Computed example of a mutant assay.
Amino acid sequence: MTTALHIVCPHCDAINRLPRERLRDGAKCGSCHRPLYEGRPAALDSVARFDRHATHSDIPLLVDFWAIWCGPCRAMAPIFEQAATQLEPDLRLVKVDSDAVQELLRRFSIQSIPTLMLMHHGREIARKSGIMPLPQLLAWTREHVDGMKV
């Protein structure tokens, strides 16, 4: 029996149904026809887009709360980019500019940036602030995702 997953498109935010076994087959959005995964984080620039991805996707969401003026955030950016190439399509990696979407910082009580938050179906699973080298980021993420029913 095939299990279908709901995957939100990082480009047009359409919700796509995708058989679990086709997750790694280079799937494209049924609405905009662009790839559902490109091996890089998606930028979510509004509360509405964030909520759509956080609540409607059946795969976990790894969120990087950052700001352009933040030195540690700029140092973390290439590490987060590399993580996307290794963690997708099992997770969706997204970046949220804390200056553009301050409501989310208040909602989640984000006190410092960069802060990484792992979510599934709109619920926070884990959180970590500060810079992490790639091996530590991958291990931290996998540790929390492995026990999750996805």
Rank of each mutant, 00 (worst) to 15 (best):
M1Y: 10
I113R: 06
D97W: 01
R92S: 15
D97I: 02
A77Y: 02
F65I: 01
Q136H: 06
D146F: 08
R142A: 11
A48G: 02
M148N: 13
V94Q: 06
R17T: 15
H121N: 09
A126D: 15
M76D: 01
I110V: 15
P133L: 07
M76K: 01
P35W: 09
Q86M: 12
P114C: 13
Q102V: 06
C32Y: 00
V101C: 08
M148H: 13
P19Y: 11
L105H: 02
I110Y: 08
S129C: 07
P89L: 02
M148R: 14
E143D: 12
G122R: 03
I131Q: 07
A77C: 02
P133M: 11
C73H: 05
L87T: 00
A126F: 10
C73L: 02
P135M: 08
A48H: 13
L137I: 07
D146C: 07
P60D: 07
C73Y: 04
S46K: 10
R34G: 13
D45N: 12
R74V: 11
V8L: 10
D146I: 03
A83F: 05
E103D: 11
I113K: 02
H144W: 11
V63K: 08
V63Y: 04
E124R: 12
L118M: 05
D51I: 03
Q111G: 10
P133C: 00
V150T: 09
S46C: 02
R49C: 06
L134E: 12
D146Q: 15
A4S: 13
A54W: 03
I113N: 11
I79S: 00
D51N: 13
C32K: 04
E88D: 04
A43K: 14
D64F: 00
S109M: 04
H121C: 06
D45I: 03
L5E: 15
K128Q: 15
M76Y: 07
W140A: 02
A100S: 14
E124Q: 11
Q136P: 07
S57V: 11
I68W: 01
E143N: 12
V96S: 03
R142F: 03
G71E: 13
F80R: 00
I7W: 06
A54I: 05
L138S: 01
T3W: 07
L91G: 03
I113F: 09
S31T: 14
I131S: 02
I15D: 12
A139D: 06
V150K: 11
A67P: 03
A43L: 14
D45Y: 03
Y37I: 13
K95M: 07
S109D: 09
T55F: 14
V8E: 06
R123F: 01
I125G: 12
V150F: 10
E103N: 08
L137W: 12
M117N: 04
L44N: 00
V145W: 08
V145P: 13
S112Q: 09
D99G: 04
L18S: 10
P60K: 00
A27I: 09
H6C: 15
K149W: 10
P135D: 07
R24K: 12
